[in-house]
Amino acid sequence: MDNIKIDATERSPEIDFDFAANRFRVKGESYPEDVTAFYGELIEALDEHLRGLKGATVGFEFELVYFNSSTAKVLMGLFDSLDEVAGQGNDVRITWVVEEDDDNMEEMGEEFAEDLENATFELKKIES
């Protein structure tokens, strides 16, 4: 599958999906006007790719400074999918990158991670 690279805009995050290396990254702010239009095809492509994995090592990095409620719903779905893939014999590592003084984003990452059963979750703090 072709890699996907989308530059960040004021309202949508940078997307960097490297399917060959199984490395995925979402970075920036996310409150697109139409969440379905922005994430729809991305999630579809990702789900299709993840479904075919066996014994793979997958790294997914989220570095978000702000997201709206619709994006939160997308992220929860993404966490579920990643957890499911991890349950199918893949090593899935989710890295939640937050600025060191952003307690809210830290708490949100931890909440998203609390239902993970198979994937590994790591909280990474960076300087603001």
């Binding site: 719903k73 929860m76 579920d80 949100m108």
Partner: peptide, 16 residues
């Protein structure tokens, strides 16, 4: 699952 999502979204909304 939906119940958990709702709870998270409500918390997110309150926090925002």
């Amino acid at each position: 699952k939906l119940f958990k999502s709702t709870r998270k979204l409500v918390r997110l909304s309150d926090r925002r």
